[in-house]
Amino acid sequence: MGVEFEEELSSDFARCIGCGGCNIPCPLFNIDQTESSGMRSRIKILSMLSKGKIELTEGILRHVFTCANCGVCNEYCPVGLRPFDLLVRARGSFIDMGYVPLVTVDIRNSFRRAGTPIGDELVKGNWLPPDFQPTKNSEVLFFAGCWMHKAIEVALNTRKLLEKISGDITTIGPSEPCSGALLYVLGENDLANDSKRNLEALISELNPKRIVSGCSLTARIYSDLGFMNLSSYILDAIRYERIKLGKMKGKDIILPIPSCGRDSSFLEILKSFNGAKILDAPEWLCCDCGFTLIYRTDRSLFSRWVQRVLSLAEELGANHIVIEDVGCYAMITEAMQTKGRLKGIKISHISGFIMELLK
């Protein structure tokens, strides 16, 4: 199959010097450091396609669309290519040319059938009272995000925590739309833009003073909508003493798993606790809704990444893993079929972790 990219995109591919800097923070490359797992291989393949040196196959298409979608490689390119942004543009170009990879079809179909890319079985708002109705002009609109509706215990803890910080909290509820952030990074621009417009209309109708997102990917991709990441909001509450935290009991050695936006708020929250040792997370250790494609289409690969995380925790002597993003928490606990512990290591979402320490 022939491929013809826009001239600017082809020119950007040609600027790659093949140094492998983009592999350094790549979560998939760091599972076993196989070249084909990293971002460099994807950019090289796209460059060869643009020059007509190879032809497009379903296998190549799958490879281009299948990564962790963390975007961390953008910060590691010495010539400023922003490899992940190039990948997203290439995906959109493939779809515009009519080349839709089989690996994304289930996600696209789930979105069209159920309004969410994470699976048809999702019931939104099942953690809210049956008679819940969103309120207008509230202090905070909490955009839960798809995975929050699946991880009910996280949703309940997050709602309780937000109510302690500010009593004037509302959410969209059962009619909350998917933001489209995952669809955007997968190149599904038309579907993503429709989702974004729908969300913008609801936000305008509810007219909140502030929007807090439980989905880290949404806050990362749609910063123009004024989303504030949940961790940033919690950190402000700690700084201005709207909530007070007690001292941790025991000697927790915590391995943090931040979301992939590289917002430092999550780590600052953990470091504010007394009585815990916070380990330094390597560059590749991040996770959010961007991992959903791998989780849904290659559970074995996702499980290998989790095992890599657990091996790291054991190497560093951690007895507690605290996760920032709800999607990451839900995927890990579902994949390992556990609640609360993995190989003797306690696992918590940041909301539950804080709720246990509130004075």
Results as ranks from 00 to 15, higher is better:
D190W: 04
K160G: 07
V185E: 01
P174G: 05
E205L: 14
L128P: 03
A144Y: 10
P129F: 08
I169Q: 05
C146L: 08
N189K: 11
I172S: 07
S179R: 01
K196N: 09
G173Y: 06
H149S: 14
L206P: 00
L199G: 10
S204R: 15
E200N: 01
E176I: 10
D131R: 12
L202D: 05
G173M: 09
F143C: 09
E188L: 11
L128K: 02
F132H: 08
G173D: 06
D168R: 09
E163Y: 06
P208D: 04
R159N: 10
G180H: 03
F132R: 06
V140S: 11
K164S: 12
G167A: 10
K150Q: 13
G167N: 09
P129R: 06
D194V: 14
P134K: 14
P129T: 06
N189L: 04
N189P: 00
N137I: 02
R197S: 13
P208Y: 06
P177I: 05
C178K: 04
N207F: 01
S138W: 02
G187Y: 07
K150Y: 11
S179Q: 00
E163G: 00
E163R: 09
P177F: 02
L161Q: 08
S166H: 04
A201M: 12
E153C: 00
T171R: 07
G187H: 03
S166W: 06
I169A: 04
K164T: 07
S175R: 08
P177H: 12
T170E: 11
E176W: 06
S166L: 04
K196F: 04
L162M: 12
K164D: 07
P134D: 14
N198W: 01
E200I: 10
A144V: 12
S175L: 03
L199P: 08
L162H: 05
R197Y: 05
T158S: 15
E205K: 14
E205V: 09
Q133H: 00
P208T: 09
A181E: 04
L128T: 01
E205C: 00
D131K: 13
N189C: 00
D131A: 05
F132C: 04
I203Q: 06
P129A: 13
L182N: 11
E188W: 09
E176D: 05
Y184K: 07
V140N: 02
T170G: 06
R197A: 09
H149K: 13
L191P: 02
E205A: 11
F143M: 09
N207W: 02
T171G: 03
I169M: 11
I169S: 05
C146A: 12
W147I: 01
V154R: 06
P208L: 10
F143P: 04
G173I: 08
S138K: 15
P129I: 08
K164L: 15
I172R: 04
F142P: 01
Y184C: 00
G145W: 13
S138T: 09
T158G: 02
D168W: 08
